[in-house]
Design a binder for these strands. Sequence first.
DNA 1: CTGAAAGCGCTTACAG
DNA 2: CTGAAAGCGCTTACAG
Lengths: 348, 348
Amino acid sequence: MIYESLPRCYPEAVTRTAAAQATIQDVAALAGVSRAAVSKVIRDAYGVSPAMRERVNAAIEQLGYRPRVGARALRGATHTIGFELPALTNPFFAKILTGATEVVEDTAYQLIVAPTPPGKSERRPIDALLDRQVDGLVAISPEVEQEWLERLAPATPIVMIGRHDDSPLYDTVTGDDEGGAELLLRHLIDLGHRRIGHITIATARPGDTSPHGRRLGVYERIAAELGTTPLVARSGQGADDAYDAARRLLAADQPPTAIFAGNDTLALEAQRALADAGARDVSVAGYDDVDIAGHPGIDLTTIDQDGVGMGRTAVRLLLERIAGRDQPVHAVSPAALRVRGSTRAPAV
Amino acid sequence: MIYESLPRCYPEAVTRTAAAQATIQDVAALAGVSRAAVSKVIRDAYGVSPAMRERVNAAIEQLGYRPRVGARALRGATHTIGFELPALTNPFFAKILTGATEVVEDTAYQLIVAPTPPGKSERRPIDALLDRQVDGLVAISPEVEQEWLERLAPATPIVMIGRHDDSPLYDTVTGDDEGGAELLLRHLIDLGHRRIGHITIATARPGDTSPHGRRLGVYERIAAELGTTPLVARSGQGADDAYDAARRLLAADQPPTAIFAGNDTLALEAQRALADAGARDVSVAGYDDVDIAGHPGIDLTTIDQDGVGMGRTAVRLLLERIAGRDQPVHAVSPAALRVRGSTRAPAV
DNA sequence: CTGAAAGCGCTTACAG
DNA sequence: CTGAAAGCGCTTACAG
C-alpha cells in the first residue's frame, strides 16, 4: 500500500472545524415557532397549519437540518431495522439481503446490517443492534440459544432466518430443508448412485434445528434406507476446510460416486478438489442455487429455496410484528431441484 | 411460501410485555451509588474505587443492563463505524468488507453496514448512517459529488474507497487502476491480441475519478497507441445487461479476439455469453480477482488489487482520523496480474 | 392550531 | 474517590 500523505492541490493544512450541526432549536428559532411545532412537521404529525409547515420546511432546508436518530430514540422509534448476517462471503446470504433490501426500500425504515466475523458468536452483533435501539431485528444465527432470543423478543420484534425451532416469541423463515435434501438425494439415486458422500459443517447434528442439521438428518435416514454406511465429512469455516473435507471423502476406502454438499459454497470447493484429484467422473450437488451455480463453467445441480423471497418474507413478517402482531408465524420457503451438468450417472 | 400461523406447542397467545429494560438509574439504585458513578464504570473512566466498580458491575450483571447507544450519543460517541456499500451481490465488495470487519474486530467499535439498493443514490444510506451519529464513515460511492462529501467531512471523518478525487477533506483508498489496466492489456497484447473489446459500466467516462473510468481511459489510450478503433460495450446494473453487452461485442463487424471486462462480475457474464455463442476461442479477462476466479471451471485471468487489504486500510485510516489526524491520506493498493486459462493466444 | 414544560437515558464538568 | 446538577436533542402529553 502506497501512501500519499500530502495533498497535491491544497498546500495548507485543512483543520476540521467542529461544524456545529443544526438542531431542532435552530430550526425553531429561524422559523419563529416552537420546537414542538418543528417536531410535528418532521414527524408529519397531525395538527399543523400549512403556513407553519411551509415556514418550518424552509428553515429545515436552509439549515440542512437532519434530526438525530439517537435523540429521537429516547422518546420514539428509530425507524431502523437491524439485520445480523454471518459469513459475508456466502452469496446465498447476499440473496437474502437483496430481498430484504427490496422490501425495506418501500418503507420509511432504514436497514442496517451488522456482520458477524468468522468464527465469532452472533451475540455481539445482535446485542450491538439492540443497543442501537433498532425497531426490529432479522437475524441468521444458527448458533445462539432459543432461550437467549426469547429473552430479547419481548422488547424487540425478531424474525429468525433458517431456524426450525418454532418459538412462540419470534417468527421464523426457513427453507424446506428436509424436502430439498430429499429431492436432491432422490435425484442422485435415480441417476444410479449408491455411494453418496455428504459434506456438512462442523457444528451440524442430524436433525437439529439448523438447515445443515436438517439436511444431514435426511442424508442419514436415506443412507439407512439404502442400507449404505453414511460417509460424512465436516468442514470448518474456511474455503480450505471445505476443500480438505472433499479430499477426505475421495480418500475413503470406497470413495463416493457422488457428493451432496450441504450448500453451494461447499460444493464449489468440492468441485475444486475433484478437479485437482482428477476425479471428474464424481457427481457434485449443492444447496441454495447461488448465482454462479448457473454459470457454464460451474453448472452445478442444486436446490433453489428462493433466498430472495426468504429475505422479503422476513422483512414483511418483521414489519407486521412492529405493527403489533403478537402471534408467531413460521414461514417455509419451498425447495425446487435445479438439475445441471454436475450430476450424471456414475461411471461404470 | 407456506405460513404456519399458529404455534404447535403453545396454544395460548403470548403477548408482548413492554419489558421495561434496565436504565442507568436502576443500576445506580441497586448498587447504591450515583448515576455518574455507573457511567464512569461502564466507560472505564478514571477515578472509581475497586469496591464501587465491583458493586456496580454486580448490579449491571444482575439487571442485564446495557447502555443505550442513542442516549450516550447525545453527549459522547457512539463507537460505531458506518459502512456504505453498493451492490451487495458483488463479491469484491464482500472482500473489502472482510478486511474492514477484521480490523474493527480488534477495537471497541462496532461496524454497521448500510446497503444501497440497486440503481438508487448512495446519498440516502450515507445520510442514514450520519443521522445515526456514526463516529466515522467508510463508503464505496462513485456517484456522489465530491462537494457533497466535503460538506459532510468536517462533522464526521470519512474514508472513501475507489475514488481518485484526492480531496483534502477525506481520505481515499483506491487500487492502482491505471497500472492494473495496463498490466492486463499488455498481457493480452503480448499474447498477440489486437482486436480487444472492453465492457464497462453505463456511467464511466474515460479517465474520470471512478475505477471504471480509469480503466476505460487506459483502454482507450492503448487502443490509440495500437492504432485500433476502441470497441466498448456498456452494461447497466443487472447481470443480463452485462450478458447483453458481451453479445453486442461479439456481434460487431470485426468481433474482438479478447475481451477486457471492467470487473470480474462483468467478466463472468461475458464468459456466459461466449459459451452460449459458441465463441470458446475468445479470451476474457476481468478485474478484482474475486474468489471464484480461481475455480477450475472459471479459471479467469484478472487483476488482484487486494480487496481485503483495501478494507483493512480504509478502517485503519478512519480510526486515525477519529483519533484526530486532519491531514488527508490517499492510499493506493498495488495491482498484480493473475494469469489463468481464460486468456490465450488468438485463434489463427 | 400552537407552545411551555417535563422527561427520555445518558455524560460532563464541577464541587465536595 | 463520589455525587448533585445541568444539559445533550428530541417527543409527548397537556394547556391554551
